[in-house]
Write a protein that binds this DNA or RNA. Structure first.
Lengths: 218, 218, 218, 218
DNA sequence: TATGAATGAGGATTCATTCAT
DNA sequence: GATGAATGAATCCTCATTCAT
């Protein structure tokens, strides 16, 4: 029952941790930083989350569970909708979810680039599911002749690079391209780009590509 | 002349640092770790590089200078070759360079996702150049009617996501897709994918796309 | 309220620091030395005082606040008593205060001979007050015709040299003069000397010097 | 013969050490600081002076030998001149010598306030001599009825406080009294003050004090 | 003389965690 | 739930010195 209780302090800790992990990373953030930002006693972090590591794990799994949950929901639509419609919906769902959890997203995507047992576990638990659901969509697209045939693995990798980029490198977008990565407009515009990619790259080169390109928000 | 000296110890430190920064990140690596791995006295790190931070900066700038240098070389070809040929060559050069400096690449790409003054400096110094050279190629492609018109900023972002992905997330590739990301084959295959992207997404939708797709190494 | 807490450990740290700073100076004393002498964990020093520097500042300002406070009290008597009586009382108060805080006195007097921003701040904060209160006494002495006219600046300097000497150079007194500088007798005797100086040097050469010389403790 | 050689490097080291020891003290100065300031290789300091400690000892003894030498010269005049004249000359000689070696003076006076074996040695070697020569002058003054009878120990202490003060606390003089302690004028003026002290305090209270006060430089 | 690489000890500080309250 | 004192390990860095050249 313990972890069900949701006090103000606990919420504050979570918020503070998200922000600090986001900008400074797990190793760059101290529990005292978090406690101070949360206006809370240091030892509470151990009390609530079983230490700094526990806190980070909690945040990562929370984020990733929501993430794969989005994919799962889309996956269920495969029976009713076209593969392309599902893929489009998947991309939109992922982008929206990540946008809503921007800070966590950056933290998780970055932390996943380390070599550690925790990361390995996350890989086999969550990212395998991600690959599974995406694969299902692509497989449907191939068998229904909606998608241009190609390697699922490589297309998923490429997609993953594109999907994580805006959340992993917001400062790059801001400093180099002078675009505000947190604004809804940016996400919509970037998503539109992805949908064009679906049109031209995933479905492209097929005679049947006669459906007019999908455009988010009209 | 002083800082040009290149002793065995210094080289060992560099190698050890690259490996450790690669897997554990800057904050996750201690100078003791590095010194031990290099078989060298801890204080030599400060002696050579002005501290851990100096070492990291040295590695990052070394990598990035090589990186933008590759792009600069390709950029010079714009006068002789087609924009598409240049873009293809740029992607190949970047992938090859990163592959040859895999460990540094992961370190730099990851470290760039933090918020810090150093990162900001790197942004304005190196990544702006990256954007500049890529922009020149795209602009040429647009004006020569080789590329499908679109926003340079967004296409560069998308491209950057795809280019950094294999080096930033090798463990993902290995654990989830069961592909060895360090093998030359993988890089060639992934690059091939990128060139298809050039064909279909960058040049696509143009009637004139009659040149058969470029395939690396035959 | 937080910094008002006064635990045993904190008191022990303060005592140990006073003794070590006294004999070995700030730079000559390590936090480990202090912690060991205090029987306390090293990190507590940073915990309580924000590091070694903070500890030193705390000690210095504590001492100096008491110091100027003594002078302020005497300064208030100027309305009721003669300037000479006040000067005498000031010297006695300063000598007594320093005697009671011998170890701190040596530390502070010594540390003040360095060039640093901290020292400059102390100068403008505390020693300016010292000069101010002493000046007021001397000015009163001059206008009331009690003191032989002379430069206040130079007399204050000379006085400062005499007042700090016994605390700054106890080992000199012990080794060269074979007098124990910590004994009350020494301070009384030295103070008596100072009062004679007041008689002969400050008030001297005036026809009106008919009050018989003040003698401490009878 | 080694220490007789006087290369440019060695002189540079000495000058750099004097300046740094003066402002930052022995413990606050690193051999690398000295070497850098001297524009010389670090290891030369060990080579020349047998380490940092040797360098400091060299500087201190050099200064103190000159110091007691000044006193010795005055002491020899006791046979020809009056005690008061000798005392006056002694004070002037000490002040002049210290002024000419201001930076060393501050360093030595400060370093002498520590508890260490080196300091103890210096006490018994040099400061005992100082006391000896001063005592001889005072004894002469007493027996010749020139000086008001009093304790030699205490008067020497008081004198020492006054003599060291301007060199030990130059920053105090500058910051609090806004007088430049390095200017010749200051030393002359301060010395004048000391001579008045001789007049009024040492010789004072004697009917015979009819010689008009000595004034340096006219 | 002079150099600079290299060392090992020690510097202060920060860290995550624990524990009694 | 919440506090803050306390700990011990680990952080990075600086130190004076040595040594082969």
């Amino acid at each position: 029952m313990k972890q069900e209780r949701d006090t103000v302090s606990k919420r504050n800790v979570i918020q503070a941790a998200i922000q600090l992990f986001n900008t400074k990373g797990y190793n760059g953030t101290s529990v005292r930083d978090i406690a101070n930002k949360a206006g809370v006693n240091v030892s509470l972090i151990s009390y609530y989350f079983n230490g700094k590591k526990g806190l980070a794990e909690f945040l990562m799994t929370t984020f990733l569970e929501g993430y794969v949950n989005e994919l799962e929901k889309v996956h269920k639509l495969l029976e009713k909708k076209s593969a392309k419609a599902c893929l489009v919906e998947a991309l939109q769902a992922i982008m929206t979810y990540q946008h809503q959890n921007r800070q966590l997203a950056r933290f998780v995507h970055r932390e996943i680039t380390f070599d550690s047992v925790l990361v390995r576990e996350i890989m086999t638990t969550y990212l395998s599911k991600e690959k599974f659901y995406l694969s299902k969509i692509f497989e449907a697209g191939f068998s229904r002749k909606e998608f241009r045939p190609q390697s699922i693995d490589y297309i998923v990798m490429q997609l993953r690079g594109m999907l994580s980029m805006p959340f992993l490198q917001p400062q790059y977008i801001l400093e180099v391209h002078h675009i505000k990565p947190n604004e809804t407009y940016f996400i919509e515009r970037y998503t539109k780009q992805l949908l064009q990619w679906v049109d031209l790259y995933i479905c492209g080169d097929l005679k049947v590509v006669k459906q007019k390109p999908f455009v988010m928000n009209g």
